[in-house]
Every structure is written in C-alpha cells, then in structure tokens.
C-alpha cells in the first residue's frame, strides 16, 4: 500500500528543484552519445553492448540511484521537514514504500528509458539487446533505489558513502575483482541481461540464480530495515 500524499510530496521535492535539470541533462547525454557513436563511428552490436555496460551500468545507474534514492528522503531529513510526515498516524513502512515507488519511477524515466533508447539507436537491428538491457536496468534501478534510500535514513552522510560505494565498489571493484562481483548490483544486472539476450554480447560473472536471489533479498530486507530505522528516527535538537 502506498500513501498518495507522500508520493505527491516526494515527487514534488525530488523533481521540484535543480535535480530535475541534472537528471534530465545526464539522461539526454547518454542518448546523444549513442546518436553520435552511431552516426560517426558506425558501432556494431558488440560495441553497443560494451558502451551500455560501461556507461549505463557502470556509471549512470549507480549515480542516478544515488541522486534519486537519497533524494526522495535525504533532503527532508537534512532540513528537518520530514517531521511533518513523521508526526502523522501513518505506518513507517508505508512511508518507505511510497518514497521507494517515486524513486523507482524516477529511475525508470531517467535511467532505464535512456538506456533502452541508446540500445535501440545503436543496435536497432537487434531489439532483443535493448529488451535485455532494459530488464537489467529495471532490476539495477530498483536495487539501487532501495540501497540508497536506506543509506539516506541511516546516515546524514549518505551522499559521501554513496559515492564511495557507487564509484568505488560498483564501478571499479565490482567490474574487475572476481570475488567482489558476487556482491555487485551491476553484476547481478549483467547476469539478467545475459540470460535475456541470447547472442552472447554480454558475459555474466554471476550465476543467474544467485543474482535473482540476492536482488530479491536486498530489496526485501533493505526496505524492511528502512521502515524500522524510520520508526526509530530521532530528530536532533541542539545544532
């Protein structure tokens, strides 16, 4: 169950300011890059897959997850206005789910859709590729939203920790260090892409079963934890 008022307030807050501009221009950039590559370099399917893997899954999704996941609650916690939501007889789990729903929709609009568009532009002859990347992006988008939403509730320094995680872990460690790949959202997404597309443009390092189970566990567990932490949220007094 969602609370429509919280959804509305969250969407207002998330997309009301400059964030919309940043997110919008970054997603346009991905599409523009795809167009340029297609027009001037004449990329094939393998190049397209490499590009999407590196740019979209290595950078865009974790970064947008960070901006959006923390954005749906972080600024309210920072400026204290979260008190108007918390001082209401509304279940904390409902608050978390409502905010998560907004984050996921924003992820789809700003990260998943541009990824699919870029895939179609560069590899239009192989629509299966776009579908596969879309599916992977949806999963990564949801998991990142949950992770960063929880992070924003747990710590005031969510953006710093989130950056270290998104760029350090997901972009570097998760891409290159074999053992760490099992715990990389990016690798889970690639595993799903690998399973959906059959032409072998993407090689997964994590077993599909493991990827699905871990994704589901993180989504469920972290959402639950976020509700618990929100219920025990204290408001600082002396500042």
């Amino acid at each position: 169950m969602l609370n429509p008022t919280i959804v509305r307030l969250t969407a207002h807050g998330l997309l009301g300011g400059r964030r919309l501009l940043v997110l919008g221009s970054l997603s346009l950039l991905i599409v523009a890059l795809a167009v340029l590559l297609q027009v001037f370099a004449g990329v094939n399917e393998a190049d397209a897959a490499d590009f999407l893997q590196g740019v979209s899954f290595g950078t865009l999704l974790p970064l947008f997850g960070l901006i959006i996941g923390t954005g749906v609650i972080g600024s309210e916690i920072d400026d204290g206005s979260i008190v108007y939501v918390l001082a209401k007889p509304v279940s904390r789990a409902v608050i978390v789910r409502s905010k998560l729903a907004v984050a996921v929709v924003a992820m789809v609009l700003f990260a998943v859709v541009p990824t699919i568009l870029a895939a179609l532009i560069m590899a239009g002859n192989t629509p299966g590729l776009a579908m596969a990347f879309g599916a992977g992006a949806v999963v990564a988008g949801i998991v990142y939203s949950v992770i960063f939403l929880l992070l924003a509730i747990v710590t005031r320094h969510a953006v710093i920790f989130g950056l270290v995680y998104a760029l350090g872990w997901e972009s570097l460690v998760g891409s290159f260090v074999p053992g760490a790949r099992e715990l990389s959202v990016q690798q889970w997404a690639l595993s799903i892409i690998d399973a959906v597309e059959t032409d072998g443009f993407v090689t997964a390092h994590v077993d599909l079963g493991v990827a699905i189970v871990l994704s589901v566990v993180v989504i469920g567990l972290f959402t639950w934890l976020a509700g618990r932490r929100l219920a025990a949220m204290t408001l600082s007094t002396e500042e």
Binding site: L9, H12, D79, S81, Y84, L235
Partner: peptide, 11 residues
C-alpha cells in the same frame, strides 16, 4: 506539533 526549525516544503 509546531517544531522550532523553519523548514517546511518551500516549493
């Protein structure tokens, strides 16, 4: 509750 902090959904 009327909190001391001023922040209140400025948009």
């Amino acid at each position: 509750l009327v909190p001391e902090r001023e922040a209140a959904y400025d948009v």
